[in-house]
Design a protein around this nucleic acid. Structure first.
Length: 492
RNA sequence: CGGGAGGUAGUUCAGCCCGGUUAGAAUGCCUGGUUUGGGACCAGGAGGUCGCUGGUUCGAAUCCAGUCCUCCCGACCA
């Protein structure tokens, strides 16, 4: 019983940490703000990568890799972008260590090895990439340039949380260049749609698509599109962003192309990314007090098979049936594991794989074989059923589909139930404090009002939703006219 | 970066206030046996520079100073 996790109601933050650590996704490291992603957690990331990478390539993008370091002069070229990230940059100032003359066996930074120009460890790669694009783009024939990079970035955050905000994290960043604003904008929304579809279809997390307010916009962008998800504690999580960068970076890095009329123009740009933060969202969106609950499409193991036996002979009998099942599962492309170790008893295994969020558990004993059936338990709702051995793999495959769908439906319902329309300032505060979730309210469109709301309630505008109809109304704070409701929430 | 809590066996923790044999417990691990349909039981065994550095002292896990790291709350954060 050493692996019990804290309950959600008792301490939500502790519950989240327990899931990550005891579910085997990641470990704390001895490096400030950085974590070790363990094999089970990395497998989740690999699935995310695999699916998204296919989508990127399907839509014409290619992968490339750019340097980890950005010379300071290059970094500061796009002023807004540089300013936005300046406070959280790791900076390389020296390139050599030497023996400490005072403390034998220790090392000190060699003062003679100071760099002429400091190198910034990338917090994002716009600068290094755009300085490169300058050389790659001359003519409209070079456009569009559609590139994605899978990489690590470093942001020196004041306070870190496993997966949600770590000093170093893994992500992908797409950086594209286009002939026209329209084309760049359509790229921006195309990528946003890919994120939204992925998060809903694979991660089974319902999202709201929208655009950021001025104050929440990416530094250097003209418009930031985002997908926002809602966690079980009623706080919002920005799950992915797609930026329309206008010509800001083209101008900062002097990236021009000759059009068909031989006119020189600045290119139009986008950038878009999702990170390992998605895993944090995945964990918080679905899990319960027994452990992780992973959607089948992302789960490293989709089916765990556990034999119930008393002797080697019994196990041999069970093995025959299980091997047939495994072959059938493999044919259907289902990720399974047969845990036939006799080091742990079945009860221990049940608890362990529940903790790890494996969507389906199949238990097979002699009793079942006599009846030509197996016991199957769903992780999402923990219901138990007996399924006939005949066509079992197909039945399990269907069940996995059911689970995937059920998880998404549950998430959608939760989201819908937690978008609350309010029309008064009192209701706004009340809903935020008591119910949580998104509060849909009219806002006068000014940064001042937004800031005032943030100061008094800590809620921020998560997004101006794309799919909400225009509607005349009055700002809940200033009573000034407003044309559309926006979504407020406490956020991670 | 401010406030709070903490760092002792693989893990969770006790011991510290009030310094003193060989630093304990549970769990995990190893060996043997009995077990096996919801985190088994018995017996034996291995495992710790008490975060690190320095100081006080005859003597430091314990007192003092510094430092590193973690967690929580806040500020900050596309």
């Amino acid at each position: 019983m050493s692996k019990e996790i804290c309950s959600r109601t008792q301490d939500y933050a502790q519950w989240y940490n327990d899931l990550i650590i005891k579910g085997g996704l990641a470990d704390y490291s001895s490096v400030r703000g950085c974590m070790v992603i363990k094999p089970y957690g990395y497998a989740v990331w690999e699935h995310i990568k695999e699916v998204l990478d296919k989508e990127f390539k399907r839509t014409g993008h290619q992968n490339a890799y750019f340097p980890l370091f950005v010379p300071k002069s290059m970094f500061e070229a796009e002023e807004q972008n540089a300013e936005g990230f300046a406070k959280e940059c790791a900076v390389v100032t020296h390139y050599r260590l030497k023996g400490d003359p005072v403390h034998k066996g220790k090392l000190i930074v060699d003062p003679d090895a100071k760099l002429e120009e400091e190198l910034i460890v990338r917090p994002t790669s716009e600068a290094i990439i755009w300085s490169t694009y300058k050389n790659w783009i001359q003519s409209y024939r070079d456009l569009p340039l559609l590139i994605n990079q899978w990489a690590n970035v470093v942001r020196w955050e004041m306070r870190t949380r496993l997966f949600l905000r770590t000093s170093e994290f893994l992500w992908q960043e797409g950086h594209t260049a286009h002939e026209t604003a329209e084309e760049a904008l359509s790229e921006t929304t195309q990528m946003l749609d890919i994120y939204a579809r992925f998060i809903e279809d694979y991660m089974a997390v319902a999202v709201v698509k929208g655009v950021k307010s001025d104050s929440e916009r990416f530094a250097g962008a003209v418009q930031t599109y985002c997908v926002e998800a809602l966690m079980q504690d009623g706080k919002a999580l920005q799950a992915g962003t797609s930026h329309f960068l206008g010509q800001n970076f083209a101008k900062a890095f002097d990236v021009k192309f000759a059009d068909k009329n031989n006119q020189m123009n600045f290119v139009w740009a986008t950038s878009w990314g999702v990170s390992t933060r998605l895993i944090g969202g995945l964990v918080m969106a679905h899990s319960d007090d027994e452990g992780l609950v992973l959607p089948p499409k992302i789960a490293p193991m989709q089916v765990i098979i556990i034999p119930i036996f008393k002797s080697a002979e019994e196990k041999q009998t069970i093995d025959i049936t299980v091997h047939q099942l495994m072959q059938a599962l493999a044919n259907l492309g289902i990720r399974y594991k047969y845990d036939d170790s006799d080091k742990q008893r079945p009860g221990w295994k049940f608890a362990e794989y529940e903790m790890k969020g494996v969507p389906l558990r199949v238990a097979i004993g002699l009793k079942d074989l006599e009846k030509k059936q197996v016991e199957v338990v769903r992780r999402d709702n923990r219901t138990k059923q007996f399924l006939p051995l005949d066509q079992l793999a197909t039945s399990l495959s269907n069940l996995l589909d059911d689970i995937q769908q059920a998880m998404l439906n549950k998430s959608k319902e939760y989201l819908q139930d937690h978008i609350t329309r309010v029309d008064t300032w009192d209701d706004f505060k009340k809903v935020l404090n008591q119910k949580g979730g998104f509060v849909s309210a009219h806002w006068d469109g000014t940064a001042e009002t937004e800031e005032k709301i943030k100061q008094t309630t800590k809620a921020t505008i998560r997004c101006i939703p794309l799919e909400t109809p225009l509607e005349e109304g009055k700002c809940i704070v200033t009573q000034k006219p407003s044309k559309q409701r926006v979504l407020f929430a406490l956020a991670y």
